[in-house]
Simulated scan of single mutants.
Amino acid sequence: MDKISVKIDSEYIKLGELLKYANVVSQGSEAKYLIKEGNVKVNGETVLERGKKIYPGTEVYALYNNEEFFIKTE
């Protein structure tokens, strides 16, 4: 599992943007597909909306192309 730490310089970042910023996906369309398929959890709960606001201290888990990613925001 890849563990990634991401510093958020604003109040929040949207989930789709976070997945791109953390290099889990390379395009927004990939993030949209990944989220809609139910392969992303935010603080342990499956999230189906790309625009979900992610604040510092949030934990995001993603499964993409049989690879697991754990993102911790600060």
Rank of each mutant, 00 (worst) to 15 (best):
L18Y: 09
K52A: 08
Q27K: 15
L34F: 00
N65R: 12
K72V: 06
G16K: 13
I4Q: 02
D9A: 09
E74F: 05
Y21E: 13
D2Y: 12
E45D: 09
V24A: 07
V25W: 01
S10Y: 05
V25Y: 00
Y12N: 10
I54P: 08
N23I: 00
T73Y: 05
K52L: 06
D9Y: 15
T46A: 13
E11G: 04
Y55S: 08
S29I: 10
L63T: 07
K36T: 11
T46L: 14
K3G: 00
N66E: 15
E11K: 14
L48P: 04
E49V: 14
E49K: 15
K72E: 14
Y55C: 06
K36H: 10
I35C: 03
Y55G: 12
L15C: 04
K7D: 10
V47T: 10
K32W: 10
S26I: 10
K52H: 11
A22Y: 06
E49M: 14
E49H: 14
T58R: 02
N65Q: 13
E11N: 13
K36Y: 07
K20Y: 00
E74Y: 05
E67I: 08
L34E: 05
G44S: 10
Y33G: 07
K3D: 04
T73A: 02
P56D: 04
V25H: 00
F69V: 00
V24D: 05
V42M: 10
E30Q: 15
A31N: 10
G44E: 14
K20A: 03
M1F: 12
N65D: 13
T73K: 01
K41V: 06
T46R: 15
L15R: 04
T46P: 08
K20D: 01
F70A: 03
E74H: 08
V60Q: 12
V60R: 04
E17C: 06
G57M: 08
K20V: 14
V42Q: 01
S10E: 10
Y12R: 03
T58G: 03
K53S: 09
I4M: 02
P56S: 07
N43G: 06
S10W: 01
V24N: 04
G51S: 15
E74W: 00
K36C: 05
I71W: 00
V60D: 11
F69I: 02
L18G: 05
E74R: 09
I13A: 01
Y33R: 15
N65A: 11
E74I: 07
G16D: 15
I35H: 02
P56V: 04
L18A: 07
P56T: 01
D2P: 00
R50M: 14
L63C: 07
V25T: 03
V6D: 00
S29K: 14
V40S: 02
F70T: 10
Y55A: 07
I13K: 07
Y12D: 05
K3V: 11
G44L: 13
E17L: 12
M1G: 15
Y21P: 00
I54C: 10
F70K: 11
V24E: 03
G51P: 03
L63R: 09
M1A: 14
Q27W: 05
S26T: 14
K3S: 09
Y55W: 10
G51I: 11
E37V: 01
E45C: 06
A62I: 03
N66V: 04
